[in-house]
């Protein structure tokens, strides 16, 4: 029982970060039908901003908002420089464009910083634990889950209660019709990238706190987890993306604690195989979004 609670909390903590990443990816998929392989670039840029802030002697309380700002700025910049030129292009083109952006960001850091690992200190409280009954819970997990829930509630409010949210949901439903109804496509797309940046920024704070380091290729893993979580949840569904993130996090932690020692290091591989099985039996993901083809 205690072990179960521990796995659950640990998994939800991990899953929170995935959920934020996946939601950011789903928001952009909604308005542009772009599966953004460059989403990890936001984490990479944030990582270096955190590193520079850290060596300038700033504390995590200052670094955190800087990280979010950096992610938003990068997200908007990438939209301006790359994605706006391929709006409405085929899925094939969109996928490869984001793949190209991912590599260019990586190469820029390779060129102008270095390929070596840049370390920074994690906050002191990160490995503290507290007890609930006899289960010991990491403070970090509790903080991550708490902040993520607040972020998700605020995002939901933004999407449900504001004009921008309504336009974004309308655009996600049917972009062309939304445009005919007077939704400003430019504004919605830029808003979606900004929102996606905020979500990635919050995720980046926790990702970096846990990692304590960054490299030019640091964005690959968070990108992959986010993309997989979005796919598990059902591409195009915002709720599905969040759900997919939590499912992926809990599955990883549960597997890591359950698998025999000699294959525990292959957890990620096993998770991928499970995801493949999910797709064989439920190709549309957990929450299906119908994209009926008109004939």
């Amino acid at each position: 029982m205690d072990q179960l609670i521990q796995i659950l909390v640990d998994g939800l903590g991990r899953g929170s970060i995935y959920a934020l990443l996946a939601l950011g990816i789903a928001v952009i998929f909604g308005v542009m039908h772009l599966l953004n392989f460059a989403h990890g670039a936001l984490i990479t840029v944030s990582g270096y901003v955190a590193y520079w802030a850290f060596i300038s002697g700033l504390s995590w309380y200052v670094i955190a908002p800087l990280v979010v700002l950096a992610a938003v700025a990068t997200s908007l910049a990438v939209e301006q420089v790359a994605f706006r030129w391929v709006r409405g292009a085929s899925d094939f083109t969109l996928l490869l464009t984001s793949f190209g952006v991912h590599f260019i960001v990586e190469a820029i850091f390779l060129m102008y910083v270095s390929a070596s690992v840049k370390n920074f200190n994690r906050p002191g409280w990160i490995s503290n634990t507290f007890s609930v009954g006899s289960a010991s819970i990491e403070v970090f997990d509790a903080v991550v889950i708490g902040v993520t829930l607040v972020t998700l509630v605020l995002t939901a409010a933004l999407l449900q209660r504001t004009m921008f949210g309504l336009s974004l949901r309308a655009a996600a439903e049917d972009f062309d019709t939304a445009r005919l109804m007077g939704v400003k496509s430019d504004r919605v797309i830029r808003g979606a990238f900004a929102l996606s940046g905020v979500l990635a920024g919050v995720a980046a704070i926790f990702w970096l706190m846990r990692a304590g380091q960054t490299t030019p290729g640091a964005g690959v893993t968070p990108m992959l987890k986010g993309v997989l979580a979005a796919l598990i949840g059902g591409l195009g569904s915002l709720r599905g993306a969040v759900l997919g993130g939590f499912v992926l996090g809990v599955a990883e932690v549960a597997l890591r604690s359950r698998l025999p020692d000699n294959i525990a290091s292959l957890t990620d591989g096993v998770v991928f195989v499970l995801i493949a099985l999910l797709f064989i039996f439920r190709p549309q993901g957990l929450i299906s979004v119908s994209h009926a083809e008109r004939v």
């Binding site: 790359a82 490869l96 991912h102 590599f103 990586e106 190469a107 820029i108």
Partner: peptide, 19 residues
Amino acid sequence: GLSDIFLGGAMLGFMVFRP
């Protein structure tokens, strides 16, 4: 790193101008 920029840039350039 220049050759990586070249590869990424070629990918982007072709996707935008000549998919």
